[in-house]
Computed example of a mutant assay.
Amino acid sequence: MTEYTPIGLGPGTEPVAALTHSGNFHADETLGYVILHYALAPHGDLRGRVLGEGPGDRLTFTRSRVPGRIQAADIVFDVGGVYDPAAGRYDHHMKNKPLREDGTPYSAAGLLWKDYGRAAIGNMLAEPVDDAMAAAIWQAVDKALILPVDQDDNGVAKMGRLSLAEIVSTCGAAWDTAELHGGEEAARREMAGFADAAGIVARYLAGVVDRARASLKAADRVLGAFARAEDKRILVLETGMPAEKVIFERDLPVVYVVSPAGGGQWNVKAVPPARGEFGQRVPLPEGWGGLEGRALAEISGVGDAVFAHPARFICGAGSREGALAMARRALAIGAPRVP
């Protein structure tokens, strides 16, 4: 816990002036602005605030390198040469830069996430969650999104092509914009590009937060279903949800996941040998691969069998009972029973 109250998160609703640098922009400061938006003024105009358009709200935002403007702002991030969160200063470019516990340097977004992330999460979720769930969501988003931005911005590890960092960069004006269109138009395009990037990052962050919430909810349900399973190799889920993450993190001996697939159909999906890999711990029977309907029903012995993929990683039936029967018969053919 911090020993200070981050600026703007106290009981008052006083205006807050935030500032980052002008010029070329990256995922770091764009994400930092989005975090402050959700934490302090989530109902404000994210884009209009950048462009100085639309109705004002509690949060004002400036992009500048002018020392006087930097000094006057309440919250300054990614510029200014100072990390003093109690004073609203969140730069990370100094020699003694702030580091994570594992030694990874923070970006400005990472520093703001530390102080404002939980407030942002609270304002982003459609339904309130308890403190434990909020902390778990914060940690999941920190690992999935904030840490990679920290690493990319500090030259530790690139996020790579088609990453959020790359998408943000493409929102910026090309290097010769001033040469082709003049300085005033180049400045306008730079600001519009930041506004565009902020909209993309805001939508992405909202999606990451909601997926983290849903993933934690799924983990509870998967573990509950596993506890109830008669054969621990077959996991039956009454609703479609991600299960692979929990299976590998908890080292569960699940071989097949049975779940509804829409239209009354139920599928059996084989678990891979390692998370994210192709292949299966136990493939579906070789004779099933590529068959459909009556042919599959005859060879599998399951009357409502619908299909089996040629790669033998998924098959389906017209009912929960049929899919469960296919999973059991596949195991009887392909794997010994787990004690």
Score class of each variant (00 low, 15 high):
49 R>W: 13
64 S>K: 03
41 A>D: 14
65 R>K: 11
68 G>A: 07
37 H>V: 13
81 G>L: 02
78 D>I: 05
43 H>W: 14
41 A>C: 14
39 A>N: 07
79 V>N: 00
50 V>F: 14
72 A>Q: 00
82 V>T: 03
68 G>L: 05
43 H>S: 15
59 L>C: 09
78 D>V: 06
58 R>S: 05
45 D>W: 15
50 V>E: 09
71 Q>G: 08
68 G>T: 09
73 A>P: 02
63 R>Q: 01
80 G>L: 01
82 V>K: 03
65 R>C: 08
55 P>M: 13
75 I>D: 02
45 D>K: 15
55 P>I: 09
53 E>Q: 15
84 D>T: 03
67 P>W: 03
38 Y>I: 09
38 Y>Q: 12
77 F>K: 05
47 R>C: 14
38 Y>S: 14
84 D>G: 01
66 V>P: 05
55 P>W: 11
62 T>V: 07
62 T>M: 03
63 R>Y: 01
62 T>G: 04
87 A>G: 11
41 A>M: 12
39 A>T: 10
87 A>L: 00
57 D>Q: 12
55 P>Y: 11
70 I>Q: 08
77 F>N: 02
51 L>N: 10
46 L>S: 06
74 D>F: 04
82 V>Y: 01
64 S>I: 04
39 A>R: 10
76 V>N: 03
47 R>E: 13
83 Y>M: 06
48 G>L: 09
57 D>I: 06
64 S>V: 00
83 Y>E: 06
44 G>S: 14
86 A>E: 13
63 R>E: 00
72 A>G: 04
38 Y>V: 12
57 D>E: 15
44 G>L: 13
48 G>V: 11
75 I>K: 07
38 Y>R: 14
71 Q>M: 03
85 P>L: 03
57 D>F: 11
85 P>Y: 08
42 P>D: 14
84 D>V: 00
46 L>K: 10
71 Q>H: 09
39 A>D: 10
80 G>N: 03
78 D>Y: 01
74 D>E: 08
59 L>N: 09
42 P>L: 13
56 G>A: 12
63 R>L: 02
60 T>S: 15
71 Q>N: 08
60 T>R: 12
72 A>T: 08
60 T>A: 11
61 F>W: 07
81 G>Q: 02
85 P>S: 01
55 P>D: 14
37 H>C: 14
67 P>K: 08
77 F>A: 00
47 R>A: 15
85 P>V: 09
44 G>Q: 13
70 I>H: 06
69 R>C: 06
57 D>K: 07
69 R>S: 10
51 L>K: 08
87 A>F: 00
46 L>T: 05
64 S>Y: 05
53 E>H: 15
50 V>S: 10
72 A>M: 03
60 T>I: 07
81 G>Y: 06
56 G>N: 11
49 R>C: 13
57 D>L: 09
71 Q>Y: 07
65 R>W: 03
40 L>Y: 10
46 L>W: 12
80 G>S: 04
53 E>C: 10
55 P>C: 06
76 V>T: 05
48 G>Q: 02
68 G>V: 03
57 D>V: 09
54 G>I: 12
39 A>V: 11
59 L>A: 08
72 A>E: 07
67 P>L: 06
70 I>N: 05
84 D>A: 11
40 L>D: 09
66 V>K: 12
78 D>M: 02
40 L>N: 11
55 P>L: 10
67 P>M: 00
68 G>W: 05
38 Y>N: 12
